[in-house]
């Protein structure tokens, strides 16, 4: 599995608090049995209403790999379609003031770090990238620092998520499956496993 230690690339600033998963990928695009086409549909309604002025449509941000957001990004539904759409558009890491919990967990399982920084750092980052979209943003999970055009600031991520990225174990499935015997032992000790028709 791939270790994720640092991600550097051009960045796209998306200003606003509480951007929910219905905005990231409207529900009508969830009518699918694969995630394949979602990259084109990311922020579909917001983009349609911004008459080409949405950052995801602006030419200067095409090819960006880092998404800079604000507070409580990804709130709302558990739909993994939201981070899948962002990732399939080309984003490999997010930095924001805070992330909704299920969104964050979905990103970990996909190998996409969501790191946090303080309000001022994010405002500065967004302003720097708006002024010069060519500026690379580097998110380093080893040094826990973000660098962009002379700005260097500390970043945070939960200890366990950081370990999973650095060691390349962000896809937990293999580890979980390997413990099947311990799983059965835990289950056997739970009284409800033998109750009722579901038992």
């Amino acid at each position: 599995m791939n270790e994720v230690q640092a991600i550097a690339g051009r960045a796209i600033p998306l200003v606003g608090n509480d951007i929910d998963t219905d905005r990231i990928i409207p529900a009508r695009f969830l009518r699918c049995v694969t995630f394949d086409g979602l990259g084109e549909q990311v922020f579909a309604d917001d983009r349609a209403q911004s008459s080409s002025q949405h950052p995801f449509d602006q030419s200067q941000y095409q090819g960006s790999e880092v998404l800079i957001v604000n507070r409580n990004f990804g709130c709302g539904s558990s739909r993994e379609h939201a981070p899948q759409a962002i990732a399939r558009w080309g984003i490999r890491a997010l930095i924001g003031e805070s992330f909704a919990e299920i969104f964050f967990g979905n990103c970990v399982a996909m190998g996409i770090p969501c790191v946090t920084a303080d309000t001022d750092t994010l405002k500065q980052l967004q302003a720097k990238v708006q002024a010069d979209p060519q500026l690379p943003v580097k998110i380093n999970l080893e040094t826990m620092q973000v660098d962009c055009g002379g700005l260097a600031a500390p970043i945070s991520i939960s200890h366990s998520a950081r370990q999973m990225f650095l060691s390349g174990t962000w896809d937990a499935c293999g580890q979980l499956v390997a413990n099947a015997e311990a799983v059965r032992a835990t289950a056997a000790a739970l009284p409800y496993m033998s109750w009722g028709k579901a038992g």
């Binding site: 739909r79 993994e80 299920i102 967990g105 979905n106 939960s158 366990s160 937990a172 499935c173 499956v177």
Partner: peptide, 20 residues
């Protein structure tokens, strides 16, 4: 817990989740 699709996969395969 509400979970995403990769975690649905994990529960199907292992009946467990990796959680903090």
């Amino acid at each position: 817990f509400g979970i995403g699709t990769s975690q649905v996969r994990d529960v199907l395969a292992s009946q467990t989740l990796a959680l903090a």
